[in-house]
C-alpha cells in the first residue's frame, strides 16, 4: 500500500488550462452606396450544447457603426467592453464621436496589442464612413483588417463568402447589371444566406438579428431560423 502511495506521489501530474472556447455563430455584413447592413445569428453554443437561442452578436457602438463578432464569447464581451471604453476616452478628448474609419483602425491596433494572447474572435464592423458611404471592415483574431463591400465571418464564413461573391459581387456572371444592390435586395440575400448556413452548420441557427445603418439611423430586424 505504501509503495502504491509513493508511486502516485512520484508521478508528475500535468495540470492543464484551456483559456479559449469556440461558441460558434456567424456574422454577415454588406456595404452599399448609402447604407450598411450587418447581421448575426442568435445561437450561442459550445460543442453539441446550446447555451441560448436568443443571444445577438451585434454591438451598436455609435449612431453610424455596428460591430458583429463570433468565436470565443468571453473574448467578444471583453473586446467590445474595452472598445466602448476607448470610444468614451476619444469622445472626452476630442469632443466628437469616433468615426467608423477611425474605429476600424483602433480595433486593429487593440487586437494586435494582444498578438501573443489574442482575442479569439472573427470580427466585422459595418457602418457609414465620414462621407456617408457604407463600409465594412473585417478582422482576423490578431487584428489583420481589410475594407470590403461584403463579408461573411464566423463558423459559416466558408459557406457564405463564396455565395456573397456570386450574389452581391456578381462574380462569374455575364450580361448582368453590376450596379450595387439596393438595401432591400441586400437584406433578402443576407436572409437567404443565413437560411442556407442554418441548414448545414450546427453552430448557426435559431434566429437572425440584423441592423440596417443609414443616414436616418439604425433600424433593427429579427428573422427566425431553424432551431435543430
Amino acid at each position: 500500500m505504501a509503495l502504491v502511495t509513493k508511486q502516485i506521489l512520484d508521478t508528475p501530474i500535468q495540470h492543464h488550462f484551456s483559456p479559449y472556447s469556440d461558441n460558434g455563430g456567424t456574422t454577415v455584413a454588406v456595404a452599399g452606396p448609402d447604407y450598411a447592413i450587418i447581421a448575426s445569428d442568435t445561437r450561442l453554443s459550445a460543442g453539441y450544447s446550446i447555451y441560448t437561442r436568443e443571444q445577438s452578436k451585434l454591438f451598436t457602438l455609435s449612431e453610424t457603426t455596428v460591430l458583429g463578432s463570433s468565436g470565443c464569447w468571453c473574448d467578444i464581451l471583453s473586446l467590445t467592453r474595452i472598445i466602448e471604453a476607448r470610444m468614451q476616452m476619444y469622445l472626452h478628448e476630442h469632443n466628437k464621436v469616433m468615426s467608423t474609419t477611425s474605429l476600424a483602425k483602433m480595433i486593429s491596433i487593440m487586437m494586435y496589442g494582444k498578438r501573443f494572447f489574442p482575442y479569439y474572435t472573427s470580427t466585422i464592423i459595418a457602418g457609414l464612413d465620414p462621407e456617408g458611404k457604407g463600409c465594412v471592415y473585417s478582422y482576423d483574431p490578431i487584428g489583420h483588417t481589410e475594407r470590403a463591400n461584403f463579408r461573411a465571418g464566423g463558423s459559416s464564413g466558408a459557406l457564405l463568402q463564396a455565395l456573397l461573391d456570386n450574389q452581391l459581387g456578381f462574380k462569374n456572371q455575364e450580361n448582368v447589371d453590376k450596379t450595387p444592390v439596393s438595401l432591400e435586395k441586400a437584406i433578402t440575400v443576407v436572409k437567404d444566406a443565413f437560411t442556407a448556413a442554418a441548414e448545414r452548420d450546427i453552430y448557426t441557427g435559431d434566429g437572425v438579428h440584423l441592423c440596417a445603418i443609414t443616414k436616418d439611423g439604425i433600424k433593427e430586424f429579427n428573422f427566425e431560423l431553424r432551431k435543430d
Partner: peptide
C-alpha cells in the same frame, strides 16, 4: 476540399 463553399452555394 471546397465542400464547405459548395454546401453554401448549393443550398441557396
Amino acid at each position: 476540399p471546397s465542400s464547405d463553399q459548395l454546401y453554401g452555394m448549393c443550398e441557396t
